[in-house]
């Protein structure tokens, strides 16, 4: 058997589950775009999304994707509340204060999840968890394909929202020039609230697909935050296409790293790729 067809499996898988990274990174980048704050709790919001879906699956017997019908609005509202009553108050003092609050939220979520759900790894079990499909010679787990489909849908919806609605345009404008946006009658506090609410809704979605794809535990969020950060930088800050390609690229290099060097290569290779890309193109693949 030649190496090329051997490689086909990790290549396809990497690109597909890279979709999960796209969804995580999109929420992080949306908030960073308007507030210039790296929301260090974003990864923990994602795992929280996973745990809440875990409850929906185990105690209510719901399908986790179906659960999102309630999960998305729930997280959206949570985001608005956290932004309005917690983060924004700190943000008005300084970006550093907001960062510290975000750290605090991150620690609280991690420790509370340990209390409630124990430090054990969990995953979302469904009838299709172990299903796979075949492309040519290659067998691919179905959930990886779902990651990719979720990423495409989320990208299209967010893109259309940003482009076609007044609120979306306000978010876009504020992320390009906050002061001038204010001169246009845009209240930045409102923009931050909605951007944060949307980021949380994206975290709910990401949490479900995370739980379908990989086992997660209360501290997994940190790892996904770092990955999402890598994806945004790789793709170029402020570019949605960049985030999408960045996510795929990250998944791809992770899968290849794992294929050649085992678990140690899984994160080493993608972050080496980030370094290489940044050396050649400091603004990232699609940065402007």
């Amino acid at each position: 058997m030649d190496t090329l067809s051997d490689l086909a499996t990790p290549l396809t898988m990497g690109i597909l589950y890279g979709g999960l990274y796209v969804v995580i990174a999109l929420g992080l980048s949306l908030v960073f775009g308007v507030m210039n704050v790296i929301n260090v709790a974003h990864g923990d919001f994602v795992t929280l999304g996973g745990y809440v879906a875990f409850v929906a699956v185990t105690s209510l017997g719901l399908d986790p994707i179906l659960w999102l019908i309630a999960g998305i609005p729930l997280f959206f509202i949570m985001g608005i509340v956290i932004q309005r009553f917690l983060l924004y108050r700190a943000f008005k003092m300084s970006i550093d204060a907001a960062l510290i609050i975000a750290f605090g939220i991150s620690l609280i979520i991690q420790n509370a999840s340990q209390l409630v759900w124990t430090p054990l790894s969990r995953s979302l079990m469904t009838p299709y968890s172990f299903k796979s499909f075949q492309i040519g010679e290659v067998y691919i787990p179905l959930v990886y394909l779902l990651d990719f489909i979720a990423a495409v849908i989320v990208m299209l919806v967010v893109h259309q929202f940003l482009k076609r609605t007044y609120l979306g345009q306000a978010i876009t404008a504020a992320s390009q020039d906050r002061q001038t946006a204010e001169l246009m009658g845009i209240n930045p506090a409102v923009v931050y609230q909605y951007a944060f609410g949307i980021a949380m809704a994206l975290a709910a979605i990401a949490g479900v697909f995370l739980g379908l794809t990989f086992p997660f535990n209360p501290t997994s969020g940190v790892r996904f935050l770092i990955i999402a950060f890598g994806v945004i930088i790789l793709g170029g800050l402020g570019s949605m296409v960049g985030t999408f390609i960045g996510g795929m690229f990250f998944g791809l290099s992770q899968a290849l790293g794992g294929y050649f060097w085992g678990p140690t290569g899984q994160l080493l290779v993608p972050f080496l790729m980030v370094l290489i890309v940044l050396t050649i193109r400091p603004q990232g693949l699609f940065g402007r």
């Binding site: 345009q169 876009t172 404008a173 390009q176 020039d177 002061q179 001038t180 946006a181 204010e182 001169l183 246009m184 009658g185 845009i186 209240n187 930045p188 402020g238 402007r288």
Partner: peptide, 24 residues
Amino acid sequence: MNAYDIAAQGICQVPEGRRLFPNM
């Protein structure tokens, strides 16, 4: 008053250096 409220009241400013939203 906040800038965004003043804008809504009917005072608009064309700022120094144009300050367009470059990627829109």
